[in-house]
Amino acid sequence: MAGEGKGATPAVARATARRAIRVATWNINSVRLRLPLLKKLVADLAPDVLCLQETKCPDELLPRESLAALGFPHIAARGMKGYNGVAILSRLPFAPREGDPDWCARGDCRHLGVELDAPGGPIELHNFYVPAGGDVPDPAANPKFAHKLDFLREATEWARARGPARRMVVLGDFNIAPLECDVWSHAQLLDVVSHTPVEVEALAAWQRAGAWHDAVRHFVPPPEKLYTWWSYRARDWAASDRGRRLDHIWVSQDLAGALRGQVVLRRARGWPQASDHVPVMVELAPR
């Protein structure tokens, strides 16, 4: 599994799930508005676990029956009206984690953790939606940017206190494109929120603290360009191709050898009523 191939059918995925699992992340930008697109995603990628961000839906209004009908009997969500919100949909059983931090003491539904019942033993899975940070890259002038840096600082301290990760996957919309080849123009975006040096270093510090491995760049090493987000402001997103890689999947070092493939579903940006983000998936064969 690599690139953007057609992907396996759900039946094939269930067969391969005995030896491997497919874990995907997507900033859906409203789960109720884009519910029909989830059916397309499942047909294309056949994920065993799908983590969503920006569900924009309080828990009591989450369309659980429709999500379960797509083949996900196990669902956890942390949502609120109108913005933010995360959810985990799974074919595999899981246990919700208790006691994870309330980041920046805001209760704003940006993180959800579970213990997956995975082949070879439990896998700790964390779904994050990192604050976007507004438009001005100055924490003194922009409270949204200050919140973003505070969130990353707390996440780094949390990871450092726990020590090097074991059998763990951390993923989601991190709202930072860390590498020069993760943006369409490094020089022109150095002062643009999502690619500023202070954000890039903050994300790198979080990654180092958990000793996590970049699962997508494992297969698509620099300097190859790779994007997961294209602005709604572009008249023709595909022609201009001014993208950024804001969506990430990290795995603990002990799972790096279990990586079998990745997909960035670029064509999803062209779906009707598309999100500005596209789904990202990796396949793991943990032992």
Score class of each variant (00 low, 15 high):
E4P: 08
T9N: 02
R14N: 10
A17F: 00
A24T: 06
T25P: 08
T25M: 08
T25A: 15
N27P: 10
R32E: 03
L35C: 12
P36N: 04
L38W: 09
A43L: 12
P47Q: 03
V49C: 07
L50I: 06
L50G: 06
C51W: 08
T55A: 12
K56A: 01
E60Y: 02
L61D: 15
P63K: 10
E65C: 02
L67M: 10
L67V: 13
A68L: 08
A69L: 07
G71A: 13
F72K: 07
A76L: 12
R78Q: 13
G79M: 07
G85T: 05
V86N: 08
S90W: 11
P93T: 07
F94P: 08
F94Q: 07
R97Y: 05
R97E: 15
P101I: 09
C104E: 14
C104P: 02
A105S: 14
C109A: 15
H111V: 13
V114N: 08
L116E: 04
P119K: 08
G120W: 11
G120H: 10
P122L: 05
E124T: 13
L125E: 04
N127S: 09
P131C: 12
A132I: 02
V136M: 00
P137T: 04
D138Q: 04
D138T: 05
K144A: 11
H147E: 15
H147A: 13
H147K: 11
D150M: 07
D150C: 05
L152H: 10
L152T: 04
E154A: 10
T156P: 01
E157R: 13
W158P: 00
A159V: 06
R160N: 04
R160K: 15
R162H: 13
R162Y: 11
R162V: 04
G163D: 12
R166Q: 14
R167T: 09
V169Q: 00
L171V: 14
L171E: 10
L179P: 03
C181Y: 03
D182W: 12
D182R: 06
W184R: 00
W184A: 11
S185F: 02
Q188P: 01
L190W: 00
D191C: 03
V193Q: 00
T196H: 01
E199K: 07
E199H: 08
E199A: 05
L203T: 02
A205E: 14
R208Y: 03
R208W: 05
G210M: 09
A211V: 12
H213T: 14
A215I: 03
A215H: 08
F219K: 04
F219S: 07
P222T: 09
E224W: 09
K225Y: 13
K225S: 12
W229E: 05
W230V: 02
S231H: 03
R233A: 13
R233P: 05
A234H: 14
W237K: 13
W237H: 09
W237Y: 10
W237M: 00
A238G: 00
A239M: 01
A239N: 00
S240P: 01
D241S: 13
R242M: 12
G243W: 11
L246C: 04
I249K: 03
W250Y: 15
S252L: 05
S252W: 10
A256T: 04
R260W: 00
L265R: 14
L265I: 03
R267K: 14
A268N: 04
A268S: 15
R269T: 08
A274L: 06
D276Y: 04
V278C: 15
M281L: 15
L284Q: 00
A285P: 06
A285R: 10
P286D: 08
P286M: 10
